[in-house]
Design a binder for these strands. Structure first.
Length: 320
RNA sequence: CGCAGGGUAGAGCAGUCUGGUAGCUCGUCGGGCUCAUAACCCGGAGGACGUGGGUUCAAAUCCCACCCCUGCAA
């Protein structure tokens, strides 16, 4: 069976790996063009491109898949099925019609929940306890196609956007291999329509979403830190108004660590315990900061930050 | 040539403007106190101050070049 793979980000990598190790015939990988990114705006390839080249798979990087020339090229490739994961472009109906076995999409949420570009991040930000992966038959809408299968996954308190992405990508890869294997054996997938009335949206994140509001509960702040990890990152400002990214945290809503943090204080107020742990008061409970990153510095343990920047109990983080 | 900050002991930082004995908070090692401790007290080890050149009696500090790291922006 001739499989054409479309994907761009890290999430797309495990599925490609599995397809390769299970000896599916991968006739090509379609991804976004190299874009200027990083410091100095150098041209950088999408993560999936490197993997594809290692496997000696032909890589296509059309500016827009809907361009007539590229659609023609796709028809000539004659794929039996197209698999798409975190690709970044919507496919027009003319492309959806090409493969006889349809276009299968791997989406990291329990559809119809969290349709859109950032389902993993939003599930975390909203403090969900559970998420999952859905395989669906792609249609012209945004993540509105019929569902082939889903697999659930509990979200751990320590999970971040990065760890969860990795787990879900692996799950999705497993599901995909099963489904394609069945197709090869002549068992086309049974797809059932989504309950569209239950749909929620998970739009692409923006910079300001990472802005921490210390009046929220410790769990909500923790969720924001987890959900925005990687990009755009959760941030606040300390004493002299400099930016501080919060990389890793742990909430303590009901468990008061020591008598040092029992006194009710203004949200954003810092407490340094005798063993140099860093706690911040929130609207409900305290949150312990584990890893932080001051602007223009590397990621460091909170203790190192406290030592080097001479942080004291009573200092505070603020919104500007 | 997108904008900006940085490289000083194992970690995180001060010192650089105004050149003159290498500092802070930790960690680590040894000792002490304690029923006990990540707490407290005493003591020790550990630095080519990113690299190369220049100025000077003297450079972490001033000048030039280069390497590496990071935030912003995309």
């Amino acid at each position: 069976m001739r499989v054409l793979y479309m994907g761009t980000s890290e999430f797309a990598i495990p599925a490609l790996n599995h397809l390769n190790t299970h000896d599916f015939e991968i006739i090509g990988v379609v991804t976004q063009p190299d874009r200027p990114s990083g410091r100095g705006k150098k041209l950088n390839p999408p993560p999936i491109k490197k993997i594809a080249l290692e496997y000696d798979i032909t890589v296509f990087q059309p500016e827009k898949v809907r361009e007539p020339e590229f659609v023609t090229l796709l028809k000539q490739l004659a794929p039996d099925v197209i698999v798409i994961a975190a690709f970044g472009q919507l496919l027009p109906q003319t492309v959806l019609d090409i493969p006889p076995c349809g276009v299968i999409n791997i989406h990291p949420s329990l559809l119809p929940k969290y349709r859109g570009a950032a389902p993993i991040q939003w599930a975390l930000i909203n403090g969900e306890k559970e998420t999952g992966v859905s395989l669906m038959v792609l249609d012209a809408g945004e993540d509105t196609g019929d569902i082939i299968c889903t697999e659930r996954l509990q979200i751990a308190l320590e999970d971040t956007a990065e760890t969860l992405l990795q787990k879900l990508a692996e799950i999705g890869a497993g599901l995909l291999v099963d489904v394609l294997g069945n197709i090869t054996k002549g068992q086309p997938p049974q797809a059932t329509p989504q309950k569209h009335e239950d749909a929620t949206q998970a739009p692409r994140l923006t910079k300001d979403i990472g802005h921490i509001d210390w009046n929220e509960s410790a769990y909500t702040v923790h969720s924001l830190i987890r959900g925005t990890s990687g990009w755009p990152g959760a941030y606040t400002y300390y004493n002299d108004g400099s930016l501080l990214k919060i990389i890793q945290s742990m909430p303590h809503e009901d468990k008061i660590k020591e008598k040092e943090v029992t006194a009710k204080k203004q949200p954003g107020t810092v407490t340094i315990t005798s063993d140099k742990q860093l706690y911040v008061e929130t609207g409900l409970g305290q949150i312990q900061l584990l890893k932080v990153q001051p602007a223009t510095k590397k990621i460091m343990d909170a203790t190192d930050f406290v030592n080097g920047y001479q942080l004291k109990t009573g200092d505070s983080f603020s919104n500007s």
